[in-house]
């Protein structure tokens, strides 16, 4: 391992151990050290957003210069990004710019993301229709039936309202017992996996920060 990798690994392991110890052992020195490291992490995360945006800018500039497919959309993205960035910087100090910033959010981002969500409804409906054809198994059948029952028990029927037996019994049972218990089991497994992953990082087995 190179010296750079060794140093970064040592720093990462040390910081992780300090935060972990500060969480379990409520000594002032450990808690303060842990909070300080967390604060630094927050600052670095905020700065990383700026780097990420620059990265996004570089990627799309590259698409334009290389005349890749979708370069026109990259032009729109860069223009919108720079305009929004400028308005965001000006808004606190130049009040007339504030409505423009709100407008950019409400007129562009909000409806676009809501439309993507609506598109997801179509996608999931189509995927549910295709699921038995694509992957015919007992679990797929259970998946479809469960989804139909929950949907039927949640949404009102026209002119009828609640669906008898489904709305008052099946749907709550599925959502609050079966799904909740399954979700808990899955979440416990996920938590254990997260623990193991964290330990690998602490041991230096996984070094996403480099040095491998």
């Amino acid at each position: 391992m190179k010296l750079k990798g060794l140093f970064s690994t040592a720093v990462a392991v040390l910081c992780g151990l300090v935060v972990l110890a500060g969480y379990f052992v409520r000594l002032d020195i450990l808690v303060n050290a842990s909070n300080t490291l967390i604060t630094w992490a927050i600052l670095l995360t905020a700065f990383a957003i700026l780097l990420g945006i620059i990265n996004l800018l570089i990627v799309h500039v590259g698409k334009i210069t290389r005349k890749q497919k979708g370069g026109f959309y990259s032009i729109i993205l860069i223009f919108a990004m720079l305009a929004t960035f400028a308005i965001g910087l000006l808004a606190p100090h130049f009040p007339p710019a504030s409505p423009a910033f709100d407008f950019a959010f409400r007129a562009v981002q909000l409806p676009v993301e809501a439309s993507l969500m609506a598109l997801l409804a179509v996608t999931l409906t189509y995927a549910s229709i295709r699921l038995p054809r694509r992957r015919l198994s007992v679990f797929s059948v259970i998946f479809i039936i469960t989804g139909l029952l929950v949907l039927l028990g949640t949404a009102p029927l026209p002119f009828l309202g609640d669906t008898p037996l489904v709305s008052d019994t099946l749907r709550p049972t599925i959502a609050q017992v079966l799904a909740a218990s399954g979700a808990r089991g899955i979440l416990i497994g996920v938590a254990l996996g997260a623990l193991a992953t964290g330990l690998r990082v602490l041991f230096g087995a996984d070094r996403p920060y480099g040095g491998k």
Binding site: G185, I188, V190, G193, A196
Partner: peptide, 28 residues
């Protein structure tokens, strides 16, 4: 579920991944 965290072991990423998978089973 936790199969996500077993990906490294299945991808032969190293003995630590395999051992972490075993630890997950033990903890489960």
């Amino acid at each position: 579920g936790e199969e996500l965290f077993a990906a490294g072991a299945y991808a032969d990423s190293g003995p630590f991944h395999a051992s972490s998978l075993t630890v997950q089973d033990i903890l489960r």
